[in-house]
Write a protein that binds this DNA or RNA. Sequence first.
DNA 1: AAAATTTAATTAAACGTTTGTTTAATTCAA
DNA 2: TTGAATTAAACAAACGTTTAATTAAATTTT
Lengths: 213, 213
Amino acid sequence: MSIDKKEHIMDVAVTLFAEKGFEGTSIRDLAHEADVNIAMINYYFGSKENLFVTLLEAKARFMREKIDAVQSDPSLSELDKINQIIDGYINRFLSQPAFHRVLQQELLVTNRELLHQSVTALFIKNTQDIVAIIEKGIRKKVFRKVDPQLLFASIIGTINQVMLSRTMCNILMNKEVDADPYKDPELKNRLTKHIKQMVQDHLLIQPVLQKQK
Amino acid sequence: MSIDKKEHIMDVAVTLFAEKGFEGTSIRDLAHEADVNIAMINYYFGSKENLFVTLLEAKARFMREKIDAVQSDPSLSELDKINQIIDGYINRFLSQPAFHRVLQQELLVTNRELLHQSVTALFIKNTQDIVAIIEKGIRKKVFRKVDPQLLFASIIGTINQVMLSRTMCNILMNKEVDADPYKDPELKNRLTKHIKQMVQDHLLIQPVLQKQK
DNA sequence: AAAATTTAATTAAACGTTTGTTTAATTCAA
DNA sequence: TTGAATTAAACAAACGTTTAATTAAATTTT
């Protein structure tokens, strides 16, 4: 039962941190929402900050594995790899909007240095790998001489922008203000289509046939 | 002297909020950093939250005026308008990275409803205007049938991504980790060039001559 | 113009809450 | 019966805000 309880606390913590931020979420809120005693959080995790780091490490592995897999697959073209990574990010971010929001917050706030650094470290490796793929495509002359780092920033940034605020996302999607856009498959479709098309238009020297009849 | 002091407090507040977030910045920190008495903040602004709203309203006018001006200029093509808006956003964001970071934080955190709503409202109008410009270009058949909302998300999102974290930006720019990338004109140049090129590749039916000799 | 009076600015101290954390006692399972 | 799980209560510290007193500036009255 203790392991279930620990994971239950982590689940609730992700949601609360996502809604209210790290500072904005009190241990008492968290304990009440998870229906456990206040002392249990420090009992399990030592401290509030350590709870956060645990959350981070537990959930951050997925995207790295995805990138590693794509990168070492020789049957994929560079554009295929980029497209699969785009799919990976969209799936990842949309399936865990709460957690993703917490990550963003920690990147924005710099006074909790440990947290900030561990989140930053996650992004560094991903950036390097994707830049390497793009640069390889450029050397092969299947890609134009684009700015690899900033193109990656555009891919991630587009998703981040949509994830920034539920309200904002609803406005972008022309939905009611109180809808839950992240569960709507339409968002995923539009987002995937838009990013892939934009990246392709920007990258490819020989534009592929556009299906616009 | 009181007006100077009020503005001085606001200046310090923007910086501190940007570094530590809204919850993470205490009135005592702020008072100490601004070298005023703790009570002066409530004396001038009523409350901490109201100080934030005041900050918002005082600084948010610029971008709206820029968009309004561009929109009503008949001598500009749709692509010109988009390009000028891109310039506007890049100038705005890069010149006030601290303030911009506070805005992002408030979009991410939803438990301070008043602040969240007032920040969201700012973005709504801007989105609508830019979408309208893109849609006009599509009707005129100078633009492809793109996703206007998500293209706007890509433009803003790219800049936001770079602004997310000083450390991350330095990595993207291949600078030392402790550099100040936002004062580096190279970032502005790269960012402007990349976004305009990407948007153009994505939007234009007849690709203009690429200067890649 | 000087003095008196009113208003605004500024201060130190205290307010009541809430914060994250700890303690010491108790319940539960092995 | 031993060790882990769980609890209520208390901890000191920090929070945003308020108060009541004091200084500075402005206004009015003499």
